[in-house]
Nucleic acid binder design. Structure first.
Lengths: 208, 208
DNA sequence: GCTCCATCTTGACGTTGGCAAGTTGGAAAC
DNA sequence: GTTTCCAACTTGCCAACGTCAAGATGGAGC
């Protein structure tokens, strides 16, 4: 950003494209994304991105990986907002939902098969990390341990928690629940999310 | 299908296009869908669909509405497969997941904002009906009643059930869990789904 | 001061969705 | 039985897209 915005031949085009892609996604949604628009916003020709990303999917994969890293951060932050240790798992889910609400297009991209390259190493690592925060919070709350690097589809109890949170987040993003644009709408949805998760925890396994 | 496949000027192009669209979605996924390919498969020119659907979104909306109607049927069938009345809610969820696994592209389409016209009456009705089966099964199991035509985002307990099922289904469709292509993979996932839902029910509210 | 090559540009190709204008042929009207 | 009409379909066009190939450019390193 700061170092010579107009060095013309150079400049940090790679990150500029990633930032442009995020802006396009935010403004126009996943299906409104075009590679050429990203190039325009970065101030380069339409063929320039090819020198930094193999193709459109390559750029989107980078954005998705970044999204998973931010999702992980959002989970951790919301978890650490909870003073009561019993609420740390709940908080993780709240952070998950809040990220989805605040970055709906990125969230949609991250979890949409075919739009990103799932064999990408950074993406896989970031995706796994986001899941690990979840499993860690579960382990701490219920006093159980799981093998490191456990597959996502192993334990029904962990899956129950993740599916609940992910289901709520996707329903919001997909517009199946109330409007998530205005600040009031967001606040309502977040309150509702907490109510749902608390309801689930109320009937959950005994807490150690 | 039967009546004069080649009347040339006529024929049931509307339904032919819908069937072609479903085939394209199945073969190429949501992002591989093109209106022109549908026209090709129906044996008409690329501009013919415009006389039956306003645009590509119009055709996809029809397909999505049909999908919701089939989802409703799948929920009911799986629910009625359960002899034990306590398992009728669980069965509804199983039917939901099975539909998603067997028609991943359609499922993705149905729940993707921006690809379909959400103001479409038939789509809204079909979507609502699919939710109603769910809420009905919940009511019967737990002996509570909800106002007819209740909004989706009203009751935390119902939402907890729906989000869990929808979350599991989307995670499967999005490829976050195991492979869902082979018959063995599908069977594994369905078994896992049942385990997750049973786990949730184990800790659910007291059954009347 | 020269050379090299990564970076960027220009231009092209094939494909898409959508619009406009022309064609066709069955059904309704006479 | 002929004519008229209009919904259904075709052809042709446009702008925009992603991607590829070939040429231009200019800073880094020698």
């Amino acid at each position: 950003m700061q170092p010579q915005e107009k060095s013309y031949h150079h400049g940090d085009l790679r990150t500029a494209l990633v930032e442009a892609a995020e802006a396009v996604l935010t403004e126009r949604g996943v299906e409104g994304f075009t590679l050429r628009e990203c190039a325009r916003r970065a101030g380069v020709s339409h063929a320039a991105p090819a020198h930094h990303f193999k193709d459109a999917k390559g750029l989107l994969t980078e954005v998705a990986a970044l999204g998973f890293e931010r999702l992980t951060e959002a989970e951790r932050n919301a978890r650490d907002d909870e003073s009561d240790p019993k609420n740390r798992l709940l908080g993780t889910g709240i952070g998950y939902v809040r990220f989805a609400i605040e970055h709906p297009a990125q969230f949609q991209l991250m979890f949409q098969k075919g739009l990103v390259d799932h064999s990408n190493a950074r993406l896989a690592a970031a995706s796994s990390a986001a899941f690990q925060v979840f499993i860690q919070a579960y382990s701490e709350l219920y006093g159980v341990t799981f093998p490191a690097g456990m597959h996502k589809d192993t334990d029904p109890s962990v899956m129950r928690e993740w599916a609940l949170v992910h289901g709520f987040a996707t329903l919001v993003v997909q517009g199946q629940l109330g409007p998530a644009q205005s600040a009031a709408g967001i606040a309502n949805l977040m309150k509702f999310a907490r109510a749902v998760f608390e309801d689930a925890q109320k009937y959950g396994p005994p807490i150690r």
